[in-house]
């Protein structure tokens, strides 16, 4: 029953998103909602490895950036259509996730985290030194002039992101309720006990890292068209890494709803704060919220709700 309800919800969100493009004319709506959708994908992807498996990834920017630059390269050189960009961006980030996962997930968890942080600096360094990717100067991307079904390209991008976001959240839900997900939960709770109870620990961890990386790359693939001008330092930024781990932690890492909730709340707040206050202060807000939640409410908003409900029923 629950499955059917969720399926209806997914279909409703997608068709609702497509319908919106017929009615809303204000381009700023699409421009800012795109970012919210992007963070729903990134936060959900982060949570598959961070929340379900218990491995903290500081390198969201690198996976996202690799997807975005793969797409950027394919646009400027081969002019590939959007679906191919998404496949290519997802694949390259999946390979990165696999490689980093295989190299470091045999060790203690912190080594993985350190490696991901260092990796994002290196990916940025490599792109800065690659003229074919625009180097430090960046690259310009022209949107296709012809758009079918939608009145302009921004609306097409928005619809694409709605579909990817729903797909990502559905995948997270599926993982959570599968044996794969239960194996991951066992690993998160106690890796040694998991292994001694037959869970193929390394294989599941690497698979989780690969899936998470692939989704981040997919989130990055439409980005060149969205931003039109792409340069390494803002594409592979620490802000993105902080955001995409702060959102699940603030929302709650235990289930799929947590990252979605965190992403919507935090990125909407940020959009408003950037416009009304300043971008530095909005980062300050994120940092304070992150540290505050980690200290005081480790199970996030979902955890707070649950304990409130429990108190009421007790």
């Amino acid at each position: 029953m629950k499955k059917a309800a969720l399926l209806i919800l997914a279909v409703t969100v997608i068709s609702g998103g497509l319908l919106l493009t017929a009615y809303i004319e204000n381009q700023y709506f699409y421009f800012s909602t795109y970012i919210v959708l992007q963070y729903i994908i990134l936060a959900t992807a982060w949570n598959i490895l961070g929340g379900y498996t218990g491995y903290v990834n500081f390198g969201t920017g690198a996976y996202f950036g690799l997807g975005a630059y793969t797409a950027g390269y394919l646009i400027t050189n081969f002019n590939l259509p959007l679906p191919w960009l998404i496949v290519a961006g997802g694949t390259s980030s999946a390979v990165l996730g696999l490689a980093i996962g295989y190299l470091t997930l045999r060790l203690k968890g912190v080594y993985f985290s350190i490696a991901t942080l260092a990796m994002s600096i290196v990916i940025a360094t490599l792109i800065i030194n690659t003229p074919a990717l625009g180097g430090a100067k960046g690259m310009y991307i022209l949107r296709p002039k012809e758009v079918s079904f939608f009145s302009n390209y921004m609306e097409l991008l928005f619809a694409t992101m709605v579909i990817i976001a729903v797909f990502t959240v559905a995948l997270a839900w599926f993982i959570e309720n599968s044996w794969f997900g239960r194996g991951l939960a066992a690993i998160r709770d106690d890796e040694v006990a998991a292994a001694c109870n037959g869970v193929p620990v390394l294989r599941l961890k690497v698979l989780s890292a690969t899936t998470s990386g692939a989704l981040m790359g997919i989130a990055g693939a439409p980005y060149p068209y969205y931003i039109s001008y792409m340069e390494p330092l803002s594409t592979i930024s620490l802000d993105m890494a902080v955001n995409s781990l702060a959102m699940p932690l603030i929302g709650g890492t235990g289930s799929w709803i947590g990252p979605v909730l965190g992403a919507i709340l935090l990125s909407t707040t940020q959009q408003v704060a950037t416009v009304t206050i300043s971008s530095e202060y909005n980062l300050l807000i994120v940092g304070i919220l992150l540290v505050g939640f980690v200290i005081l409410a480790p199970n996030g908003l979902v955890g707070l709700f649950q304990s409130l409900l429990k108190r009421r029923t007790d």
Binding site: G109, V242, G287, V291
Partner: peptide, 23 residues
Amino acid sequence: AESLRGLVFFFGILFLVEVGLNI
């Protein structure tokens, strides 16, 4: 057994120090 949360805590501190200096 909370070393991962501790890691995120220090990451948050890193970010706050940077943003604080920046402001």
